[in-house]
Design a protein around this nucleic acid. Structure first.
Lengths: 142, 142
DNA sequence: CTACAACTTAAAGTTAACTTGAGGTCAAGT
DNA sequence: ACTTGACCTCAAGTTAACTTTAAGTTGTAG
């Protein structure tokens, strides 16, 4: 597949694909002239990268998790650490989701004054602030 | 409370507090000379902001959710939209957490070849790539 | 009352993750 | 053979979210 095919099928712009290659997150399987050629499994890898991004990992961390090369043997302990980290995040997000849902339905004048909302958020927020707030959102794709 | 007290108690640096105030995410309740004074509930608000950050919302979005002012009446539909968005994220992260945990235990040469891993990730990744990948990680706090 | 540590503002600098632009190459259709 | 459009590289630009720095002000301990 050439780069524009990958771009079309994955939704990831060609410029980003080149950037990812430069960063070692993906690699082309060869060239036809100057044009990069990618294997079919690149789509899967891009999906995993996207997934890592929404999980709040940096490209560097993702590179660590996925392995910069192809199938390096991976630090299993690190994987478990990431899984645990993710688990804490999931718990917070769950509380936040519930909080948002409740806030949408709640009749309290300000949801900051609703005890239910406060309890839900308190759950999530405890530790949120001293934890590692490591996400930074980006322009929405499209 | 003065700014350094807030900083100490919340873990959010004073420079960030000033930045958040400038952006309208928080507001000081007054001044003693030039020094900002904050109400006690600022800590709660900061926790909510931190929470929003790990949920992948931008400061602007958080400002929208929390209300720029104090207790404006909020767009309930937007809250539900955010909750739904969050729910999809949670599902992806859950699949990813399970995938990571499995990968750590799996004996397959590369987890990219382990069918269980692929199934877990496939679940999460479907839509991840065409969805709105709106997270961007940041330097770890501390 | 004076020193000074801690605050203030405004502006510039930093980082990650991209995107854009200029200038060049090349495979493919006519 | 020649044009064309999609690709290439490399460098510079962009954005969000901060941090740092420079220069100035101030509440409080001595």
């Amino acid at each position: 597949m050439d780069i524009s095919t990958v771009a079309k099928r994955s939704g990831v712009p060609a410029s980003t694909l080149r950037y990812y290659e430069e960063k070692g997150l993906i690699c082309s399987i060869g060239r036809k002239g100057l044009q990069r050629l990618f294997a079919a499994n690149i789509l899967e890898r891009l999906a995993l990268i996207a997934l890592g991004r929404v999980a709040g990992f940096s490209l560097e961390e993702i590179s660590g998790i996925l392995g910069a090369g192809d199938n390096p043997d991976i630090d299993r302990e690190m994987l478990l650490t990431k899984a645990t980290e993710l688990d804490r995040t999931i718990q917070k997000l769950t509380a936040m989701r519930d909080g948002l849902q409740h806030a949408a339905a709640c009749t309290a004048p300000s949801h900051l004054e609703c005890p239910r909302f406060r309890r839900l958020m308190g759950l999530a927020a405890s530790g949120a602030i001293k934890g590692q707030p490591s996400n930074k959102p980006v322009k929405k794709s499209q």
